[in-house]
Design a protein around this nucleic acid. Sequence first.
DNA 1: TTCCTGATTGTTACG
DNA 2: CGTAACAATCAGGAA
Length: 139
Amino acid sequence: MKGGETKAQAKGTDDRLKTRGKKAGKKTKDPNKPKRPPSAFFVFLDGFRREFNEANPNNKSVGAVGKAAGAKWKSMSDEEKAPYVATAESKKSEYVKTMQKYNMKLANGTNTGDDDSDKSKSEVNDEEEGGSAEEEDDD
DNA sequence: TTCCTGATTGTTACG
DNA sequence: CGTAACAATCAGGAA
């Protein structure tokens, strides 16, 4: 057990509580723009929502689930969040890779037009599918 | 009818 | 180092 909880973040961003821009219907004009992968919390939320949906057919709204999920999330132990965090990590890996292609494409698209076969090796080889998500920490 | 907001935390990136 | 914003969701409120 770690005595000091990581309060480093210190939620110094309470300002964002106020509807931070973020329009729902705002679509990105960049089709390749990689969307951020769901955090461990979101991964947990994904499953939690379904449960909440059945547990609360009345459904209140996203806020209700969010609060419930957040409350429970904090109640969860690191080990319980481990699987969610592990999934989040995997998503992040893909995100990073996607980001590379996104950046690369921009570099290619906005820059030159010379590219055909050579660029093949120049570009990022997405054939790197190794173990991935195989981190098991034995207690 | 159609669009947008709300609420949760995490993660990522820039100055 | 710190801040700023955005990631999903689902139904209701507003114009």
